[in-house]
């Protein structure tokens, strides 16, 4: 590791080496490497079952890897937990849970609060600020079951913002959201980058990758490629991940660009 920390060489935000994850003998991720430079927006793309969510969860230590190593800003994840915020897929929770928007956003402060302490006025204020950033402050006291899909996604984004981290891992933040929400999320991502933060997002719509992201990782159990979009986001790499089906999609994006 030390050679990489030589002076002048910037420490990558995330470094994944030889990561392998298996569920009951079936490899979900096989020998994956990834380098995310600090201060970029990176998309992870790949077909269904490519292990995109698993990669995010492995970086967060939520799944136990069979082999491999994850470094955040050059140190093991356990030491850097405060630096990392997480936006899970919104479909993973029960939106009929008896709680309010503000309450959910304050959960982003639980890590800093530590054991036993309950959120108070300070947490409330931070949560309101985060809600304002995603244009949801007027809905702070609404019950979460009354939110649209896009509003749910913005609540999850606000919950990550309130963590005040430097690296943001997002699992399909654009999944099934309306145009307003998509614009709001893109704006928040750009603000995060301007402040020097790093965002890694699992992304489905290949057409918008060049528009929204600086870097891309193409994954299908094994990693196919990662790097700046104009280098890594090639037809060959996409075909290697998706099979033949993708050429149409990407050609369309090229014409648009």
């Amino acid at each position: 590791m030390n050679p990489q920390r030589a002076e002048d060489a910037p420490v990558p935000a995330i470094e994944v080496n030889d990561l392998t994850v298996a569920y009951q003998e079936n490899p979900v991720l096989w020998d994956v490497d990834l380098l995310v430079p600090a201060g970029v927006l990176m998309a992870i793309v790949g077909p269904n079952g490519a292990g995109k969510s698993t990669l995010i969860k492995a970086i967060l230590g939520l799944v136990e890897p069979a082999a491999g190593q994850v470094l955040v800003h050059g140190a093991p994840y356990d030491e850097q937990r405060r630096e990392v915020a997480y936006v899970p897929q919104r479909g993973t929770v029960d939106w009929d849970f008896p709680t309010s928007v503000l309450d959910v956003v304050m959960m982003g402060r639980y890590g800093d609060l530590g054991w036993f302490r309950r959120p108070g006025a300070r947490e409330r204020k931070l949560a309101m600020e985060a809600l304002a950033k995603v244009e949801m402050d007027d809905l702070a006291h609404r019950q979460i079951s009354q939110l649209s899909g896009g509003q749910q996604q913005r609540v999850f984004l606000a919950r990550a913002l309130v963590q005040d981290a430097r690296v943001y891992l997002m699992d399909e933040p654009f999944q099934g959201v309306d145009a307003t929400t998509e614009r709001a999320i893109v704006r928040v991502l750009q603000e995060l980058r301007e402040q020097g933060n790093t965002v890694v997002a699992v992304h489905h719509a290949l057409q918008t990758v060049p528009e929204y992201f600086d870097e891309v990782m193409i994954l299908n159990v094994r990693h196919i490629a990662f790097g700046p979009v104009d280098e890594a986001f090639t037809d060959d790499n996409l075909r290697a991940a998706y099979g033949g089906r993708v050429s149409f999609l990407h050609a369309g994006a090229d014409v648009g660009a």
Binding site: K57, L60, G61, L62, V84, Y86, P88, T92, V93, D94, F97, T99, V104, M107, Y110, L113, W115, R117, R118, P119, R159
Partner: peptide, 15 residues
């Protein structure tokens, strides 16, 4: 708050 996050979003709690 620990039981609350366990009931609502255990993976986020883990993160």
């Amino acid at each position: 708050k620990e039981f609350k996050i366990l009931s609502f979003d255990p993976e986020f709690g883990g993160s």
